[in-house]
Design a protein around this nucleic acid. Sequence first.
DNA 1: AACTCGGGGCA
DNA 2: TGCCCAGAGTT
Length: 218
Amino acid sequence: MLNRDQINYCLDEIDKMFPEAFCELRHNNPFELVIAVLMSAQCTDALVNKVTKTLFEKYKTPEDYLAVSLEELQEDIRSIGLYRNKAKNIRKLCELLLTEYGGEVPCERDELVKLPGVGRKTANVVVSVAFGQPALAVDTHVERVSKRLAICRWKDSVLEVEKTLMKKIPKEKWSKTHHQLIFFGRYHCKAQSPQCEICPLLDLCREGKKRMKSKKGA
DNA sequence: AACTCGGGGCA
DNA sequence: TGCCCAGAGTT
């Protein structure tokens, strides 16, 4: 397992690789952020950005989403995939916001996860990005990179990964760490074809060295 | 823990 | 053409 200094070194190196690693959604208001993150499940960010751009021009408030039929909303987000469930969740979510939360997105993670389609990862992104609270969202990229780099254990659950990262990384870095590991995982330490040959972290990466070794043998 | 949703992007 | 993708809900 990597110690704090080694993890810090990794994050600095990743920062050099992806200096632009920030969330494009940070400029959105909390409501739009919830919608965007909810739609991003199992879908590439480029596609979500394309769809949300037009979507947010048409829909500004929870009332706007409820003013059209479910079928119309489904058609508006069809290209992101899983669109039937996502459209239903958005409508339910908007109803709840109006009836239970005064039309505003709650800033507490415990309240956010009560909303349909909002799980722990989405809630963490929202409190972190929209409300500036220290939170570390763990998705498949963060989980994979953390395990390959031995920041956490291989068998750790998502929740255990989150706890370990929070323990080993200073609180003020949590929000940025998420986006750094996302970029690193998506463009470099990819699930299927990690770029170990040109990776500045190879010396620290047990999984990377193992891969290079087996590649050489084969 | 496994299954489902799902069109788009990429090899 | 086949396979995977910024997850969450249900069984």
